[in-house]
Structures are given as structure tokens and as C-alpha cells.
Design a protein around this nucleic acid. Sequence first.
DNA 1: AGCACGCCGACT
DNA 2: GTCGGCGTGCTC
Length: 818
Amino acid sequence: MSGERVASVVVDVAAEATDKPFDYLVPPELEEEVAIGSRVKVPFGPRKLVGYVVGFPAERDLRHLKPILDVMDLTPPLTPELVKLARWMARVYLCPWITALQAMVPAVLKGKYRRVLRLGPGFVSEGFIAGAEETLVRALQKKGELSLKEALELEGVSRSLVRRMAEKGHLVVEERVGDRTTRKRQTWISPAQPAAVLREAAGKLPKNALRQREMLHFFIEHREDILQPALLSRLGATKSTVDRLVDKGLLHREERETYRDPFAGRSFEKTEPLSLTPAQESVFQKIVAPLREGRHRTVLLHGVTGSGKTEIYLQAITETLNQGRQAIVLVPEISLTPQMVKRFKGRFGGRVAVLHSGLSHGERYDEWRKIRTGEVQVAIGARSAVFAPFPDLGLLVIDEEHENSYKQEEQPRYHAREVARRRCAEHGAVLVMGTATPSVESYYRARVGGYDWAQLTERVHNRPFPPVEVVDLREELRSGNRSIFSRSLKEQLQACVDRGDQAVLFLNRRGFSTFVLCRECGESVECPHCDISLTYHRTNQTLRCHYCGYTRQVPRECPSCGSSHIRYFGTGTQRVEEELARTMPGLRVIRMDVDTTRRKGAHERLLTAFGKGKADVLLGTQMIAKGLDFPGVTLVGVIAADTMLHLPDFRAAERTFQLLTQVSGRAGRHDKPGRVVIQTYSPEHYSIRMAAEQKAESFYREECRLRKRLRYPPFCRLFTLLFSHPDRVKLMQAGSRAARFLAPRLPEGGELLGPVSAPIPRIKDRYRIQIIIKYNNLTDEPTGFVETLRGLKAGLKDPELRLGIDRDGVSLSAGGDG
DNA sequence: AGCACGCCGACT
DNA sequence: GTCGGCGTGCTC
């Protein structure tokens, strides 16, 4: 018994108490298969669970250990590097280790557990059953088997009844742990020796070994792998022939799993590398230099829209592949268009796996497996592709690095940018982050030297930037224009439509008016469950809460003073749509906001319709700002640029700048020149001014100066703890208790602010307060303080109390509402 | 998380 | 005495 190995396994139970490895014996028959990253079936108390092998500890006393029951995959789904990465994620993002591990594998590998009941072989109708027992037996006789869950839903059936019946042998309880889809396994045969050796062996075979000789000759002629059934039918041989040659070491037999190819039958036109402009060439060198040395670097590629970033990515990938290493390309989900796929498939053909949300579970799994088995060397996909299980990652590209979709908002919460950096550091790989509007953090790091900095300031073919006009809405008001549209925007819109071109109008508020106000007492109509004004929706004459969904009719009288002088303020997409219809009749408008895109597929349908010229104007919120690329669009209008400038968020200016810059880039991308009109009440604000003047450098400088002065990231680390509770008094007590707990445990130079009321003090009848913690250590991973927060979280006893934690704008756990 | 165990009151 | 409800503690 002495030579036996022990494996540490993290089991599939996402709970505090089980968030650690458990040790199991590796039975001799599984010895070969168990590796770090293996998915295994293990006994856990009275249950059987799936888990991942995370290590092989030296254990002296083996007697109390239970054995691993089974290994579930031919190839371990995870590499040791990913197992380690998951542990890091668990610490940094405050989630159970198993949750991070599960995030790295395709959905089909997430185990499914079922306890199934059947009538036992010993069951004989003894005549004396009644009540719940009878109900259960009848159901089992009818259906053959029931899951435990189904059984417990039957009238009167309880766990103890099931247990008693099982003890008497009337029932059999079977545990099933399985995958969601089945994999097709096929047996492949390949030659194990060079042709000369096979020829020699064929000569030495006894005369009557006819089939073996034929088979060897087949492989002398065809030096390739072949499916076993195909081989056998071709030669009229049987499996025993193969067995004998495999035993002699002449052939190799291998189990392989088959793929569903989502791009089967489609061929991609081969594209050749374009020659790089001198500016592109210089950026390319900055990427390739560390790549050739196998040195980890992060390169921030600040390149204006249309400056040819993709071609640089493609050539850097080619270089990576030439070195025998692999590459990952992350793109925001919406930019993973067929054109994008075509471009990569065209250059790299069968060496690319594409992971996007449109794939079925099975297809996604197959793409993933090509990565895992080394069949492809390039993976392109959205956020989760950052976990592509390559063994020797050389290059990782994050396109549009400032995009919010790189943040995962469900457990495990993570930021793909941070995960990517970690992976690249581990592999000695180059991380390239490309964007026209870097996040302030990345910009700062590139400037002070943490990252390498590369810039592309010119558009390919020297396409001009569209002229941007900033309209001062205060001025408009003074000159008597009370409409939503400034005279200039209206003129431009008219001219654009007259030319037969298309326009995009952008507004980040849905609904009709933002709030309803009583002119007598000045009170606005608020949600009874949240401390926020209700939004007026014209279509069904209702007021709606955008936080909890509460809906009510518009009151005739003010709820607080009874006056009938009620007015609508602010502007929403519905209102703009209506005013467009009034001022420019006959205009065809497509409105895109949460209300019109709620149904599945509506998003794509509306965009396609607009792309086909079915409307003159695309009017929408946030969601239309990105990824839009319509040749017919020559006018982009921003209805109110400052709506998000006054949000209580230190990134408000950055977001405004990024949005305006991105939106402006959407005008006149093709052969037609474009125009941009930005309407605002604060034309002097630096984020608006510098976006309009396309002075990115000046904006980032100013923003860094302010952040430094006010002590915000990237000049400190910022934690926001948001507590919520239905009872205000209990919430206050919990808040002060938390502050008392944290105060003596702050990192050096740490500063604790609060507890104070949250920006929205109540959502869905839960009161909200927050504590803000700032500290300076930016070089270390924030694991130390997260550990303190874990302690705080574990110490919360009241189940009604929820705690949401946010670090530098990445939320680690939700605690605000629903 | 699940599940067993153990204690306690309600009931045939 | 037996059944079921619920709090506690453990899973290699």
C-alpha cells in the first residue's frame, strides 16, 4: 500500500466551508490518468461529487483517505497553469476556488448531479402499503424511475420515507454524475514506426499472417492516421489484427473525440499580409521585440479608429506561431462579427478556434477542445476566451481594452484585462491592449513606464477625421430655442437626410422624461421602493422605476400637495423620437433602447434593418455607441453629452470622453465625409472639449492631474463596500460595526471613509450605505486586504444584510439589490 | 451546499 | 413509542 499517491481535489461545492482541497488516494488503475487539472469523481461524505485535481501533496498517513472513484476526461480539462490562475482569482475576486475553475471550462463539463430512485429488486407488493408510500410506488411503477427531487414533490413523500424504503430494499437510490452532452469517441490507428521498420517487420512475419502483412503495407504506403472502422473495412480485417500489431509496437491506437465544426463546409478566402505603413511597422517592432525574447511585456497600443490595428495583430500572431507558441485575441462580444472571423480564418485557416456566444454548448465545447489538444494555435473570442487552455501562450491581444464588457458581472466576477496580465506574466507572453480611448489606468501605466507605449495617430489611407461641432444648449435656450434639437443639429439632420445619407442620434436616457415634478411644491414623483425619481413612458402613459420595475399611472394630482400642476422634465429616447416625428415628419426612425430590444434577437434585427437603409435615423442609448460601422452614416448627433458627467463616479469624465470619441469615430468611416454635432450644457468641460478637438493626450493629462489630487485610481487602490438591509437601524449598526472592524486592519497608508448613505439610498425597499477605503500599494496584488474583507463577510450573521464589494471599479460581489 | 445526527414536541 | 421539524457540524 506504500507507493500510493495522494491527490488534492477541490470539490464542486461553492461554499466557504468547502473552499479548500480535500485529499484522496489515487488508485493504481487510475495512476496514469490523474494529473493536475483532471476532473475526477470523488466520494464526499455520503455523496459523490465532481472535483478538480489541484496538486499532489506528500501525505504520510494514508489510512483515513478515500479513493478517487473515476477520471472523467481523456485529457485533463485544465492545465496546471490554469489551476494556479484559478486560485489567484479566488483570492483576488473573493470567490470560491471551484467557481473560478468552473469558469475556465465549457458549460458541458459542468457536472450534473442526480439521485435517481427505482423500485428495488427485492420489492414485492406486500399488500400493506398506503399513503405516501403507495403514491411513490405507483409513480415508480408508472415511470420506471424518478429523480429524488421529483419524488420529494409528490404528496407526503419525505426524505425519511425514501430512506426507510431504501433500507428495506424496496427502493434503490442511484447517484448519477454526468456531463450534459455526450462526446463522440473514435478509435484512430496510426503507424508507430518509420516505413523502413514496418517493411522489415512485415518480412519477418510468419507466412500465414496475411492480414497483418497487408495492414503493414497499408501503413508503409499511407503514412497517415486512419479511423479504425475505415481501416478494417478497407482491408477486410478485424480488430484482432490491429491488436496484434499494436502489441508488437508497430501501430499506435488512440481514442479521439470528434468535433462539430461550426464553420464546416465554409471556406475562407486566404488573405495575405498587407505591407505595413512606417507607423504600423514601428508599433509592430515594439510588440515583436519582447516576443522574440520570450519576455513578458504589456504594450498599450493607442490607435485612432481606422488606423489599422488589426493588421498589426495578425502579423504579430504569425510571428508567435512561427515561434511555436500560441495566441489569444479578445474582442468585445459585439465586435465578433462574421467579417472579423473571416479576417482571422482567412489568414490562419484551420489554426483558429472561434469562441462566441452564438455557438451551441456542443459547438463551443468542440472549439475549446481543439485548443486543449493543440489542434489550433489561435483562439479568438469574447471575455471568457482569456482562459483558452494553451500550454505555451506567446501573445494575448485585447482589442478595445477600455470596453466594459471585459468585466464579468456574475460570479466569478473578474476583469479579463487583469486575468490576461496575470496569464501573460506567467507565460512570459506579450500582452497587447489596443484602443482608441485607453482607460486612464492603462494610459497612466504606459506613461510612467509600467507598460510599453505605442501610438498610431493617422488613419490608413489618410481618411480625414470628421469635423466636430459643440453646441452650447444654454446659448440655444437664451436665443429662444426650447426644442431638444439645436438649430445646427436640425439643419445638419435635414441636410443629411436630403442627401440620402443616414444619421445616428445618441442619448443615454430611455423613457420619455426623466422625472415628473410638481410645480407647486417642487416634489418629484418617486418610486415607493427606491429613492429615485420615476421615469415617464409615453407609450402606455405610465411612470416606471428603472431600478425595480415598479410601474404606476401618471398621477393627476401631486401625491404630496394635491396640486394639479404637474410637469415633465428631462429628455428620454421616446421623447426625442416623438419630437423628431413632429419637427421632421416622414423621417424613418429606429429607436434602440432597453425597451425596444428586450426581446431576444431584437438588437441584431434593428441594426440589420438600419444597415439595409430601412431608416434614416438610428436613435438610441449607450448600446448603439459601440461596434457601429455603417457606410451610409455621415452624421452623428449627441443629444446631451453631459448627462453622465454628473454621476457620482470618479470615472464619469473618462466615460464621457471615451463615449464621445468613440461615437465621433462612427461618422464617415468610408468614402463619404462625416460630421459630428455634440449638444451640451457644459461645453467648457475638459472631457467634452478635448473629445471634440480630438486631443486625447491633453484629456488624459488633465484627468490624471485631477485623479492624483483627489486620490483616485490609478493613484490609489479603491474599495467600495456597499451594505444593504431592509431595516434602516440594523443597517446603520452593521455599518458602524464593519467600520470598527476594518479601521485597525487597514493596509498601510489606508484611509476609511464612512459609513455614509449610498448615492441611491434605497433600492427595492433595501436601504443602502457605503464605506470607502483607499490605500496606496499598487504594486502588490490586492489579496491581503481582500482577505480581511473575506473575514468581514464571514462575520456577518444577519442573513438580511448584504454586502457588495467593489475594487477599483471591478465589483467582487453584489449586495445592492435583487 | 447537502446531508446526518440529535434533540424536542405532537401524534397514532 | 414514532414521526417530522429544525439547529449544528462535517465532508479528505
